[in-house]
């Protein structure tokens, strides 16, 4: 597998910016014309043209591609130019809570979020869910989607800080997402450490006993494949990609 994505950084003016420029130009033109009229007719009751803020809406569909890893309630956020995690950096506590316990509440409450939403419940293997998100914030140009693979110690999948400002109306874009490891909890797969139905154990633990750097996950081993202390079986193994994500701009 050789995946290849081209991020073309040539068009500095985003679609949004261009639209704003057009709106501003139109306003100026109309304004000047109106002023001209009022001057000629002596009419001082000119009201400036007020344009409602532009609204952007997106639908986001996720499909769980795994055999036996339910996904924790999906968190979706729109924000400015930033990444919520990066390979080689320590996970934030909000990400740690999500990746170890499936708890997205801190993540959704991040002050940097300009809009956010979540799925009603976990997403079972083979299932899909579609979420809708809207914003009038002109800076909400970047997308983050994140979810935990719940039958693991601290595996999560998602994508973060993806520029969606170039999407035109009804344009859709898809990704096949790989699995990250938050690096905050050892992958010992031990009884009591996995929050999903395979164990029903503890989710978030503030102690960090792993590499403390986000990286790609090495997969679960399971007791069937030589990790004698594991509570997981062959049925919990997974491979990349784990999630398919499609975003469509609907407004």
């Amino acid at each position: 597998m050789l995946t290849f994505n081209a991020h073309k950084n040539i068009h500095k003016n985003t679609a949004k910016n261009s639209i704003y420029q057009i709106v501003i130009t139109s306003l100026l033109t109309l304004g000047l014309a109106a002023c001209g009229d009022s001057y000629n007719n002596g009419d001082d009751n000119y009201t400036p043209l007020v344009q409602p803020p532009m609204e952007y809406s997106y639908s986001i569909t996720l499909t769980n591609l795994t055999y036996g890893q339910p996904l924790s309630p999906i968190a979706v956020a729109l924000h400015g130019d930033s990444k919520m995690w990066q390979v080689g950096q320590s996970a934030s506590v909000a990400l740690e809570k999500l990746a170890e316990g499936g708890d997205n509440s801190d993540f959704l409450a991040l002050e940097s979020n300009l809009a956010s939403t979540m799925s009603d419940g976990p997403l079972p293997p083979g299932a899909s869910v579609t979420l809708h998100i809207s914003t009038t914030e002109p800076m909400a140009n970047y997308l983050t989607v994140v979810t935990m693979l719940v039958n693991t110690n601290d595996a999560f999948s998602g994508l973060t800080g993806v520029d969606i400002s170039t999407l035109v109306l009804n344009q859709e874009k898809s990704w096949q997402l790989n699995v990250y490891d938050a690096g905050t909890e050892l992958n010992n797969e031990a009884v009591g450490t996995i929050p999903g139905p395979a164990d029903g154990g503890v989710g978030f633990d503030a102690a960090r006993n792993d590499i403390d750097l986000v990286g790609y996950h090495s997969g679960v081993v399971s007791k069937d494949d030589g990790l004698s202390s594991s509570v997981l079986t062959q049925a919990h193994r997974f491979d990349n990609p784990a999630v398919k994500l499609t975003i469509t701009r609907t407004k």
């Binding site: 597998m1 995946t3 390979v87 790989n178 699995v179 050892l186 992958n187 010992n188 797969e189 790609y216 996950h217 090495s218 997969g219 081993v221 494949d225 030589g226 990790l227 491979d239 990349n240």
Partner: peptide, 13 residues
Amino acid sequence: NNSVQRWLNPVAK
């Protein structure tokens, strides 16, 4: 070490 030094592709970006 099977719980640390295995991998899934891709391994590099």
